[in-house]
Write a protein that binds this DNA or RNA. Structure first.
Lengths: 110, 110
DNA sequence: GGTATCGTCAACCATCCGGTTGAATATGCC
DNA sequence: GGCATATTCAACCGGATGGTTGACGATACC
């Protein structure tokens, strides 16, 4: 039924994977570069990336011998929509949030 | 660190638990009543409720011999905030996001 | 062709998860 | 006291998870 939502929430339930997602927020990355800041093996990171891919949170595109990882925001958006379905919170203005991020990024620039 | 978020997302990653949460949206319920529509044992539901409680998504209040379960929306809100601002672990961004939310709320007010 | 780099596969391990069943602990009722 | 109801505990099971290591298949470079 809602196995997609299962996969998304399960994928988000791990700090390593959340950190990977936030790294990909900056830019697309190769698998080796994703693994670099972590203290675990490359194989472990590769598994985490597979879980994120299965959940639809990222996509992987192999060009040459390097595999590029790209954030896919839609799956995460689905999770947010489910939470909002509770009606407990004001609906989130995604466009406003995008503008917020943009402003922050500009503010941080030298 | 971020074990709280771990627990929230892990708790949300199960359809039974999500269904329980949506049931509790209606009203507080006793454990037995929560278990009634499910086809699994009462003990299994009791475990699910323990997981939801540990994640802070519900609270349980024993009055007499019946234990009442109540939805606690704050934990879910934390998850939403992370998703919306994912990658904003740095306090600076979190504060900025709080201000952003505040601004949005003021903007929306009549 | 030979070699280094990128990434996954396979096997293994410890631990957790979601479920069961049966016994145990409260509490309420007569 | 004695019995029924509400809920958890304890032990168990099969399967998933998160990690390791070592071998392997591709691709790039000289």
């Amino acid at each position: 039924m809602d196995t997609e939502l299962d996969a998304v929430f399960a994928a988000l339930a791990d700090p390593t994977r959340r950190r990977i997602l936030s790294m990909l927020l900056e830019d697309d990355m190769a698998v080796t570069d994703v693994a670099e800041p972590f203290e675990m093996s490359l194989a472990a990171i590769s598994k985490h990336l597979a879980i994120l891919t299965r959940a639809g949170l990222i996509s992987q595109d192999k060009r040459g011998r390097v595999k590029w990882c790209r954030l896919e925001p839609d799956a995460m958006r689905a999770a947010t929509v489910w939470i909002q379905g509770f009606g407990l919170f004001e609906p989130v203005d995604f466009d406003a949030f995008e503008r917020f991020l943009e402003r922050e990024r500009i503010g941080d620039a030298p």
